[in-house]
Amino acid sequence: MDLNTVEQLIPATGREAVDAFEPGDAWLAGGSALFAWPDPKLRRLVDITALGWRALTATDAGLDIAATCTIAELADYGTHPPPAEWPALAIVRGCCEALRGSFKVWNVGTVGGNICASLPAGPMTSLAAGLGAECLIWQPGGGERRAAVADVVIGDCVNALAPGELLRSIHVPADVLRGRAAIRQGSLTPMGRSASLLIARVPPADLAGEAPAFTLVITAAVARAVTLEFAEVPTPAELDAAIEARLVLGDYFADPHGTPRWRRHLVRLHARELLEELTGA
């Protein structure tokens, strides 16, 4: 929709853009979040796609996904075909498909924009949390900081980015990518918005004993990602007990996309399915 209070749309020229950030400014990437939600406080859009960031950068350390990487670019990278050395990327497709919007929205919507919108159902938040990614954040004054996704998206449409802070990229560690991961989405409707989205992962064989043997990341059913790590592969009962110990009914998210009680059930059900899929337990 037209953002009728916006007076200026300016390209971000470089790293110093964060220092020029003012009240009433918003970072513009794909626009699919900003242009869908009226905010009469907006006066200026700062276009960070002008910075020309490379969408995806694979290194020995892992995968860096620029905030401006479109969901279409990510889906393509994760699908055609997923790099053989990084089997955990198999969940990328499922995360992209968990977005309520179709491929047309993928063509403009960005990974960073989805995280910064900070909706519980944001599937890029799920992806990042599910793969233990770290956010790189540019700070005013020239600094930068790194934070886990669960420390960035901290509530329903609430994030921990200070005014002017800019999500630059997310880094997925190679050690996670070399492992295996699986995904389960629950929704009220076919291909609908996530009521729960669970990602589980197991480490590659060479990290057995070093990394947690099983990690479960719960999103969409809760407003802030919950990660459960298990040093040993849990039994189904242990997994369920751990979920129940960590989350009580009141912790589950309530909105038009599902009741807390159902979401809790889906989390327990899908967690067990993921455990079986990844470990045979």
Partner: peptide
């Protein structure tokens, strides 16, 4: 040539 929703497109 790429389909997009023009209501979301600056």
């Amino acid at each position: 040539g790429t389909p997009v929703h023009s209501c979301l497109y600056p």
